[in-house]
Design a protein around this nucleic acid. Sequence first.
DNA 1: GTCTTATTGCTAATGATTCTCAATTGCAGT
DNA 2: ACTGCAATTGAGAATCATTAGCAATAAGAC
Lengths: 137, 137
Amino acid sequence: MTPSAPVPRMTRQRREILDALDTRDFRSAQAWHERLRSEGSTVGLATVYRGLQSLAEQGEVDAVVAESGETLYRRCEAGDEHHHHLRCRICGRAVEIDVPEFEAFAHRIASEHDYGDIRHTIELTGICPQCRAASER
Amino acid sequence: MTPSAPVPRMTRQRREILDALDTRDFRSAQAWHERLRSEGSTVGLATVYRGLQSLAEQGEVDAVVAESGETLYRRCEAGDEHHHHLRCRICGRAVEIDVPEFEAFAHRIASEHDYGDIRHTIELTGICPQCRAASER
DNA sequence: GTCTTATTGCTAATGATTCTCAATTGCAGT
DNA sequence: ACTGCAATTGAGAATCATTAGCAATAAGAC
């Protein structure tokens, strides 16, 4: 029925992207691209965008939309399903948190209003200790 | 100290924007602009952007960043401080909800990680009953 | 009414992301 | 290892939302 998505292939560049995704920080596709180039890779920007997108679909990376509208990516913790983040608005450093209470709450609210196919996003942002110290002087 | 922001003036176009913001739906700046034009207004797109932005700063309108990256605006309920939404991913229709438990939770998590100047966003999206019905046939 | 300056409306400029398409290259089968 | 072919890549053009630049207007104070 479904047009059946093409079979993914493991290419050099896809491997490189995966390898680059090591830190715990959220970065934009452009930032990851720069990092790759600076490390000698020759991947194209478009490829990085495509790669990150498909990885996000497979659940390999987390994607969040910053207030500026740009999408930030980061490799996900192991295979855990669902979680949220406390992210630094300045350096991007993020901590994974989970809000078990909320999962239930979301569904209650949703069914109260008769909304279906619920999805939720919780974004907690702040200034991390390091950046705070830096900006205070 | 602060460069003291200019004194805002009530212009025809600002009034029109305020007037247009009547429905309970989230719409993009472009969408609000179209609506205004279709109702005979001659406001420019940039003016709508500027107007919505300043209104958002004053807390007169809510602004949320959709997954697509575009910013959606809607007039706020009276002057209540802080709240969240359950928004339909198809038609944009939204319900204001509040999550008192969460406000406290957010601060606890934040201080646990020593993050300052906390800000949070909770976005609940789903498909509203009307759109669900529509897409089911 | 006059003046000062915030505001408007174009339009051009940005910035991020996506698309186009020819050139590559996994990889299944032989 | 060799072929065939669809998936993938890379570079640049194309989109899209949003912002900046600037001359022309028009609030609001006097």
